[in-house]
Computed example of a mutant assay.
Amino acid sequence: MSKIIVMDSHDELMSVPDVAKRIGTEPNFVRALLDTGLLPCIHFGRYRRVRKFALNEFLKRYEGHDLTAIVTEMKAAAK
């Protein structure tokens, strides 16, 4: 008996340009969010995908925050 997996829109995988378009930023800023670990992603070789659910949770968590400042601080701390 095979198992049937039903995906809904929460399971949708979004590319970096898709995420950038959705949040109104450049793909490089999305990559910075991924590089710092603020926004979780799934790796497929060199490709990174963000679950729609994870993006929505990320947006809830950081609503009202200046993410540019947070990313800049995290990059500086990593050096």
Rank of each mutant, 00 (worst) to 15 (best):
G37F: 04
A32H: 12
E57S: 09
G64M: 03
R22C: 05
E26V: 15
A54G: 04
G24D: 02
M74E: 06
M7E: 15
L67N: 02
T72M: 10
S9V: 09
L39M: 10
C41V: 01
P27D: 07
M74D: 00
R48V: 08
F53D: 11
Y62R: 05
F58Y: 07
N56G: 12
H43C: 14
G45W: 07
V50T: 02
E12H: 06
R48K: 15
F44N: 08
D35K: 14
P40I: 09
L55H: 01
E73V: 05
E73H: 12
H65D: 07
T36P: 10
I5N: 14
I5Q: 11
K79Q: 07
S2E: 15
L33D: 04
N28D: 13
R49E: 06
S9R: 09
M7P: 00
E63S: 09
E57D: 13
L55R: 00
A78E: 12
P17G: 02
A54Y: 11
N28C: 03
I42W: 10
R22Q: 12
L39N: 03
P40N: 11
V50K: 01
P17S: 02
T68S: 10
V6A: 11
R49M: 14
S15M: 08
T25I: 05
E73M: 06
G24Y: 03
M7A: 15
K60R: 13
V16I: 08
M1S: 13
C41W: 00
Y47Q: 14
I42V: 13
E63Y: 12
A32Y: 01
L33A: 01
